[in-house]
Amino acid sequence: MFSLNLDKQQDTRTQLVENQYSEMVQVTVAEVSKALLGKEHQIRLSLCCLFSGGHLLLEDLPGMGKTTLSYALAKALGMQYNRIQFTSDLLPADILGISIYDQSSGQFSFHPGPIFNQLVLADEINRTTPKTQSALLEAMEEHQVTVEGETRRLPDPFFVIATQNPVNLAGTYPLPESQLDRFLMRLRLGYPDQRAERELLEMDTERDKVESVQQCLQLQQVTDFRKRSAQVKASSALLDYVQRLIAFTRSHEEFHFGLSPRGSLALMRAAKTWALMCGRDHVVPEDVQTVLPAVVEHRLRAMSDEDGHTGAALVQRLLSEVDIID
């Protein structure tokens, strides 16, 4: 499942153009890599997701470094962050905040919940009830929350990095498609390769690796990056290719349903950011192909699918069967 991602890692290096943007990304990736060894490509993709202004869903088995990645990212980007551990008895109010009667002033005062942060780490999101999940997801979509009739804006930028265990583990509430769609990307980290594993084992086990991650980007830089990436050029030849990809998902019988317009928009946005991260002002097919698995895997489902994990195979078909030229 990860072989493709590892292949693409090599591509990424070869199509790099040295300039301030690619350098910036390079530095950040190196910084986050201190905490998570041998996962440059996944780190790059998560950065791409955040630079695109989208929310990230990390999905893997327990102990693969999901939480570590989230923390490291938050620290490297210098964001104000908070972590919510989702459990089955968590209530919406625990996330959004609650109004408490203040006896001294004789008024209700609002105590904001952990969601009022620039970066929210929603740990094990599929362990909580759908009710609580939807409270979070609504906030993600609208960038605002309504508590007791009053609408409050969330800080800007606002990112959610959610992690979840594969849904077939016990005691989970799988996210429905409509909510999965809200995440720009879904990433899997996978086992570290041999070299990284060895390095990990050789390291000082006492030290907290996340602690060593330094802030290397200013908030302003993140916002700039986001603005700049919107200006990346997508030629008609490239748009043709993207349209063919989308049409393929909609016309072939193996696909339970095709890619939604939100999905195709997400794909374009991520591809543009990726192009900029490589230092280019135009999108090439490789950009689309690199972000494609992360962006669309969780939005696709095969006809014969039961647990929602056949997207990867479908993406492989998309990559190999849709040609870049007509």
Binding site: T14, Q15, A237, V284, E286, Q289, E321, I324, I325
Partner: peptide, 28 residues
């Protein structure tokens, strides 16, 4: 597209040494 046509010709040329462009393969 004339550009794509000549690019396809490149693939045909390289096919002679056993390296045609594969479906879905990007230029880089």
């Amino acid at each position: 597209d004339p550009v794509n046509r000549v690019y396809a010709r490149l693939s045909r040329e390289l096919d002679k040494i056993g390296l045609p462009r594969q479906s879905g393969e990007g230029p880089y």
